[in-house]
Simulated assay, not measured.
Amino acid sequence: MHTPEQHLEPKPARLSACEMTEIVMPNDANPLGIMLGGRLLHIMDIAATIAAMRHAGHPCVTTSFDSVDFHTPIHIGEVCIVRARVTWTGRTSLEVGIDVFAESPIKGERRHTTSAFATFVALDQETGRPTRVPPLLLETDEDRRCFAEGEQRRQLRLARRHARG
């Protein structure tokens, strides 16, 4: 377990990014032939968890999903592409941005269908207690913008938690 005195080397988001690809089958869809939101959230959570664990170097558990926006549906037969990337890190928690695309495997046309943010806590494998995560190395203007926006979302999550008591 990391002690507060230990220095953790910052890591860039590009090293922990995850991309998953699946074809949408009839079992993944509703009677209208549109991918079920719960099925898509399941895949999004897996991709985001992989990115979180890669960055943290520890098992990570999902603590929240924020701002899930379903922009357009994904249909049976389309390829579902899920991209996850760490956008913000705290002491023991980290946020992962998730973008989903649908692609026609025949025409190759791709469109952005879904976006979300998920928050994770890294756990020490031996104790099961929260443990420190490496800081995020901000390499680009986009990294810095995402980190600042992630800090704002963190403040909103804390305010919601405080309001619930």
Rank of each mutant, 00 (worst) to 15 (best):
T114E: 00
R111I: 10
H58M: 05
T49D: 07
V133L: 00
T3M: 14
V86S: 03
G150E: 07
G77A: 03
V61N: 03
S93G: 00
H58T: 01
E19W: 01
D66Q: 11
I23M: 15
P130K: 02
F101L: 09
R153D: 05
F101Q: 11
R145Q: 14
E22C: 03
L36M: 15
S16R: 07
P12Q: 03
A122M: 01
L136M: 01
F70N: 13
N30C: 02
G97P: 05
W88I: 02
K107C: 04
S16L: 04
N30H: 05
Q155H: 13
H71W: 00
H55L: 07
R154A: 09
I50Q: 10
T72Y: 01
I106A: 10
A118Q: 11
D141M: 09
L138M: 11
T127R: 14
R164Q: 14
P59N: 06
R83N: 09
H55A: 08
T127Q: 11
R83A: 08
S115E: 07
A17I: 00
L156W: 01
T113E: 03
H7I: 15
T119M: 10
A116T: 05
A47N: 13
T113V: 05
A122Y: 04
G150R: 11
D124S: 02
D99C: 06
S93Q: 02
E109H: 11
E78G: 08
I98R: 13
L137Y: 08
W88E: 02
S104L: 04
G77N: 03
A163M: 14
M35C: 15
D28S: 12
L32A: 12
P31E: 00
G108V: 09
R129Q: 10
D99W: 09
T21R: 15
E9A: 08
Q125L: 09
D124E: 10
R110G: 04
S64R: 01
A148R: 11
A102S: 15
G57S: 09
D124G: 03
A163H: 14
M53K: 11
L15G: 00
E5L: 15
R110K: 15
A118L: 14
V68D: 03
R85V: 06
L36D: 12
E139Q: 06
A17P: 02
T21K: 15
I76V: 15
